[in-house]
C-alpha cells in the first residue's frame, strides 16, 4: 500500500510542473494575444514562394 504514497508524490510533482508551465506561459505573454498567432502561422515563408513560382 505504501507505494501509493510514492505515486501521490509523483503525481503532485508532475502537476506542480504543469502549474509552473502555465504560470510561465501567462507571464511570458502567451495569453496576451490569442488571435494573431492563428493567422500568422498560415502565411507562407518567403523562401518557399520563390522556389514555387506561380
Amino acid at each position: 500500500m505504501s507505494v501509493i504514497v510514492v505515486l501521490i508524490g509523483v503525481s503532485v510533482f508532475v502537476a506542480v510542473g504543469f502549474l509552473i508551465a502555465f504560470l510561465w506561459a501567462v507571464k511570458s505573454g502567451q495569453y496576451d494575444d490569442r488571435y494573431t498567432p492563428s493567422v500568422r502561422m498560415l502565411f507562407d515563408d518567403e523562401k518557399k514562394k520563390e522556389e514555387d513560382p506561380k
Binding site: 501521490i8 503525481s11 503532485v12 502537476a15 506542480v16 504543469f18 502549474l19 502555465f22 504560470l23 501567462v26 507571464k27 495569453y31
Partner: peptide
Amino acid sequence: KKLYYKIGVAGFCFGNIMLL
C-alpha cells in the same frame, strides 16, 4: 495576468484536492 495566475493556482489545487 494576475487573474490568470489565480485561476491556474485554484484549478491546480482544486483538481488535486478532489483526487486526494
